[in-house]
Amino acid sequence: MLTRVETLWPLPDEAATEALARHVAPLLRRGDVVALVGELGAGKTTFARALLGVLGVHELVPSPTFTLVQRYVTSAFPVCHVDLYRLKSPEELDELGLEEALSEGALLVEWPERAGDRLPCPRMELRFLLSPTGVRTATRIEGP
């Protein structure tokens, strides 16, 4: 499990989300799993969209809840935006072809907790939080 340094990022607006994306983008490597954790509406997809934008994806980045996996080509390697919200059991993960995706590129995974232990240990985890008073933050936790 991840027991490393935690960095807290306040996310008051979209510019702050973009700044976080610009910070994360150069850290991304082939074979990385980035876990995006947080409740519905906490800002996971918005961040994924910002990160893909920084990586040079200019097409529309819709929520992958329906398709589960959306693959994007970036200048470095393909990045798959994965949403496991609809996963009913971790076994279903085997059908999504994530191993192949990881061998060629990186994964941004929303709702990683639905995968049980079937997802490789994330190298980075971002925990999105929207407080009842409307304050939005992200906590970045780095892997080994």
Binding site: L40, T46, R49, S63, T65, Y85
Partner: peptide, 17 residues
């Protein structure tokens, strides 16, 4: 088209909440 979620996704997730 939608810039983020589909309408049905909003209703489905709203129902889940």
């Amino acid at each position: 088209t939608t810039l983020d979620d589909a309408a049905g996704e909003c209703l489905d997730k709203g129902a889940a909440m």
